[in-house]
Design a protein around this nucleic acid. Sequence first.
DNA 1: GTGGTCTAGACCACT
DNA 2: GTGGTCTAGACCACC
Lengths: 134, 134, 134, 134
Amino acid sequence: MALRIKIQTGCDTPIYRQIVDQVHLAAATGTAKPGEAVPSIRGLAEQLVVNPNTVAKAYAELRNEGLIESQQGRGMTLCDRREVLTDSERMRRVRPLLSDLAKQAVMLGFNAQELSRMLKDECKALGQRPSKGA
Amino acid sequence: MALRIKIQTGCDTPIYRQIVDQVHLAAATGTAKPGEAVPSIRGLAEQLVVNPNTVAKAYAELRNEGLIESQQGRGMTLCDRREVLTDSERMRRVRPLLSDLAKQAVMLGFNAQELSRMLKDECKALGQRPSKGA
Amino acid sequence: MALRIKIQTGCDTPIYRQIVDQVHLAAATGTAKPGEAVPSIRGLAEQLVVNPNTVAKAYAELRNEGLIESQQGRGMTLCDRREVLTDSERMRRVRPLLSDLAKQAVMLGFNAQELSRMLKDECKALGQRPSKGA
Amino acid sequence: MALRIKIQTGCDTPIYRQIVDQVHLAAATGTAKPGEAVPSIRGLAEQLVVNPNTVAKAYAELRNEGLIESQQGRGMTLCDRREVLTDSERMRRVRPLLSDLAKQAVMLGFNAQELSRMLKDECKALGQRPSKGA
DNA sequence: GTGGTCTAGACCACT
DNA sequence: GTGGTCTAGACCACC
């Protein structure tokens, strides 16, 4: 039983983005397998207590990316599409987040060592329970 | 040479935030020293070709945070750095960035060790020094 | 009944500051509880007959301080109270008011004992409760 | 030798107001006696490293209040005018400062007891060295 | 000259 | 509907 989406209110990332990111993460970590069904728009909207339009917006983005596809009559399922990225492309995607973190952390008085420890903890938490602790 | 602020338009981070961050960073890394003057609101606005109110907004935030102080009629200067936020608050502010980075990095197949190294490089690039003295 | 904000024009404290202070005070005294909604920017602006930007400025400050949080498209609510400022910073902020009061009071011939009594009365009038629980 | 005015930059009270207040305080506490000379405008301006206009503005206010008077050819001196205030008038003057302090302190999480102690300390400091510690 | 405040009106993203 | 950002222009106090 995969793809249990959870959103956190009072967080600055938009709800639709949280949904998109969680599907991405589930697909990447193998928590959700190709061909597996994703919750229906109105079902997920009801479960998360959000506007169906918000879920629809998230699914539209996922569909455009080719990560999910609508199988007529069977709702939407995860594609088996697997991105093959070059090292430089992976670098390019993670770099700005590294930069943001480093800047903010330095401003707040953290040093590189503290950061590394916290980051390791964060990664460990992700590996243990991808869908719950996220 | 002190506090040359630059902004990039067409970037998704607001102008006023770019200004705030750059002053913060300059103060944290020691690029700008306590007592040093910051550019006048109107002067900086003219230089950056933005509305003076935008600069004023950035400076107001910096002033509220206690990072700069205004000497009426004589411009603003950097304050002596002091610890303003509790440890738990600093943690709370850096946590979401850690989380974002960890998620994205895991998706891209980086491991914690690689991340730590890259993060250290980023910090070094910012000119970080032992945290307490910053 | 929650968070009825009132402002007095013709008073030297800025409107936006009156708003900020009243929300702060309501949160500190327990008049407004965590999770409770605050009036919308446009709604409050209309009620107070001021410019929406003035209210927005007040709310932005409150948000930066972590006292309220915005849930995009759904308005803003009070956060759980947490200690954000270090003790030394809290001290630094209350010190000038103490100094002003002491100077003025000494000039007027009050002694410390009288002042303490009056100050206790003021605090009681604000509905203060044991500091840590506030 | 009395009336050694000192100002503190980086404080939000205007310089001219600091001067006015200090003369008031010195007169009220007896640090400066009636008939005593006050520093010349340009002398004081030079000593404080401020604009002579600023000192002039402060002196103008003091003169309007009748606290100092210009003795032709001898500069300005303190008047022997002694205000006799009713209790209600004294109350009226100290009340707003009490209120401000109480509000700010409650917001910052101080309780009445802590405040009283700090206020006593402040008063003691004023009594000991009116012109130096101010 | 400086910063501080307020107004008016615009555009955007999110729900 | 909501908040977030930016612009333009005004008035004030202080130096």
